[in-house]
Each structure stands twice: as C-alpha cells, then as structure tokens.
C-alpha cells in the first residue's frame, strides 16, 4: 500500500431510522469504540434506499457503502426491509457481475439494542474496504472515438 499509506477508506452508511440508526446511537452512548471512517445517512427505512443512491455515493468518492436496516420481521413499516432484501440481493449480484468488488457494497441487519453488533459490523466493513483499497477513480471522460 505504498503511496496509499495516508489513505483512509470513506464509507457511506445508509441506516434505517428505527433500528440501525438507533443501534449506532447506542454504540455511541455506550462508548463502544469503532473506526471513524463512516459517514452515516439516516433514511426512514431500508426499503427507501434507491440503488441510485448507492451508485451516486461511489461516484462522489465513497470507497464502500453499507446499508443496514431492521432484522427481517422487525420492520417499523412491517415489510419494508423484506421488500428491500430482494432488491439488495439482486443489486449486489448485479454490481459484482459488472465488476465491483463485493467488499465495497455490504448489507446487514442491526436492531436498536445491538450497539455491540453495530460497532463490530463497522470494524468489519472498514477492514474489508481497507483491504480492497481505494476505489478507482470512476469519474473519467468517456473514450469517444474522436473527442
């Protein structure tokens, strides 16, 4: 990792308001230590997350994206995370298929009482992305034949 020794991964985490965000809160008030590489974006429900948000995060410089919602069955809106689960399964497969490293896009379930799990999850995601390295700069010009 020569030349990247100063590099710290940037990770965008989309957390649902009712479970995972509260879980992050609990990790905070419980003073559980985890890496500072996370930028949290609170969303009403994991079902609210448009795949476009995830791609835009990568385009704007994220090295990794984490999406987390309530455990299946515990959704505040009853089935939001179950619908999201199908979408995310396909999305992850599809992005990996088109050449994204699987470590860069991760999904998990964290409840409001799982501060410990949240911190451990963060450490794992940060370690995974760190191992994968910085996202190649995707903002480049198209190779049009004669531009």
């Amino acid at each position: 990792m020569d030349g990247n020794s100063m590099w710290e991964p940037k990770i965008v985490a989309f957390l649902c308001n009712w479970c995972s965000y509260a879980g992050a809160d609990l990790a905070g008030v419980s003073r559980i230590q985890y890496g500072p590489n996370i930028r949290i974006i609170r969303v009403p429900c994991s079902g609210r997350i448009n795949p476009l948000y995830i791609l835009k995060a990568f385009q704007n410089g994220a090295d990794g994206v984490l999406v987390s919602g309530c455990h299946p069955g515990d959704c505040h809106y009853i089935s939001g995370n179950l619908v999201a689960r199908r979408k995310f399964t396909l999305l992850k497969n599809f992005l990996v298929y088109t050449g994204l490293e699987p470590e860069r896009i991760q999904f998990s379930w964290v409840s409001a009482s799982e501060g410990q799990r949240f911190a451990a999850l963060m450490d794992k995601v940060i370690a995974d992305v760190r191992k994968t390295g910085p996202m190649e700069n995707q903002i480049k010009e198209p190779r049009l034949a004669y531009d």
Binding site: E141, L144, A145, Y146, D147
Partner: peptide, 30 residues
C-alpha cells in the same frame, strides 16, 4: 471508426462510412 493516427495504425479503406459523423472532431459531444 475514425481514429487518431499513429505509425502503427493501419489505414483502412474497405468500408462504406463510419457510424458516427465526423462533427465530433470540431464539436465534441461533451
């Protein structure tokens, strides 16, 4: 395609026309 020339690039003669118009050389798409 209409491509930038380099000594290694062989000029191709057997074609009807390019898919893209050459306007992009003077007036790029972006």
């Amino acid at each position: 395609i209409l491509e930038e020339f380099s000594p290694e690039r062989e000029i191709f003669y057997d074609f009807a026309n390019f898919l893209r118009p050459p306007k992009g050389i003077f007036f790029p798409q972006r």
